[in-house]
Design a protein around this nucleic acid. Structure first.
Length: 272
DNA sequence: AACTTCGTCAACCGCCTATCA
DNA sequence: CTGATAGGCGGTTGACGAAGT
């Protein structure tokens, strides 16, 4: 195999590298360098910054510890619940899970799971089974829709907005650019029409921002109503990582007054 | 007080994938 | 197309402090 390990002693920069815990001085050198030059080029970084560390070690230190937007410790009950739900959907894909928790790192979540949540899950498998249960409430037009998250809504800072009914003559299509490779986008099934969309508003003080979508319900011609956002675990994850700006309305769908300014029309020739 | 065990978490290791020449 | 390289990821380790005996 042609690749030499980044930190191997035989590599050109591998001799005499520092290992183990980082010192405050090393942290400062790394932080200053990245502030001035930006992230990336990790293998060249130690040489250019004057650090006796391998590039991987620098990257890890920055991403897991020094990044300014990082949140440390005190994982809230809401975050814990989200970790549990996402782990059920995704398994040990820590970087994906971390992507859903602003300021948290994959390493932190992995450690948290291995030391706390994994233990809890093993001790309380019955509770875990009920946590993921979703209600399939039929929705009336203009109804206020509760997502599974709302079980403890009182403890959450987000404000749920009232959903406007979609008067559909076509399908709703959600294209989330952040979705993991291999996950399909969520769309209204062919024999359904989207009937209701709910979202949260992240910061009430900011007015109407690009809130996360919470659920989407579709109705068949005979009046049967289904929560299509929770119908499939893969969709469920993608949906939860979806913002209003990801919502596309196919040509022919009538306007939705409450959201009209938030929704963009798809490009011409878009395929289903 | 001394020793042992347990829990936590930063850091390392090795593999995989994307990119580029 | 192929091989080299860099970046990224998940699993694992080990140091260290806290709790227990």
């Amino acid at each position: 195999m042609g690749r030499s390990p980044c930190c191997s002693s035989s590599s050109s920069t591998g001799e005499g590298l520092n290992r183990g815990a980082w010192t405050a001085q090393e942290d400062k050198i790394l932080s200053d360098y990245i502030k001035n030059h930006g992230e990336g080029r990790w293998r060249k970084l130690p040489e250019e910054a004057g650090l006796r560390r391998c590039g991987k070690s620098c990257r890890l230190r920055w991403l897991n510890y020094l990044r300014p937007d990082i949140k440390r410790g005190n994982i809230s009950p809401e975050e814990e619940e989200l970790i549990v739900r996402l782990h059920k959907l995704l398994g040990n894909r820590w970087s994906l899970i971390a992507g859903r928790l602003p300021g948290r790192t994959d390493n932190e979540i992995k450690n948290y799971w291995n030391t706390i949540l994994g233990k809890k899950q093993r001790q309380a498998p019955v509770r875990a089974a009920t946590d993921g249960k979703k209600t399939q409430t039929p929705l009336a037009a203009d109804s206020w829709v509760a997502s599974p998250k709302d079980n403890n809504a009182a403890a959450q800072p987000v404000v749920r907005t009232k959903a406007k009914a979609l008067e559909c003559s076509s399908q709703v299509f959600i294209d989330n650019p952040k979705r993991p490779a291999g996950m399909a986008s969520l769309e209204t099934p062919p024999d359904h029409q989207a009937s209701s969309i709910t979202r949260d508003r992240m910061d009430p003080a900011q007015g109407d921002d690009d809130g996360r979508l919470l659920s989407m319900t579709a109705a068949t011609n005979n009046g049967e109503s289904n929560d299509i956002s929770s119908a499939d675990p893969l969709f469920d994850f993608q949906f939860e990582d979806t913002f209003l700006s990801d919502l596309l309305i196919l040509p022919g769908l009538s306007a939705i007054p409450a959201f009209s300014s938030d929704i963009h029309q798809p490009e011409m020739g878009m395929q289903m």
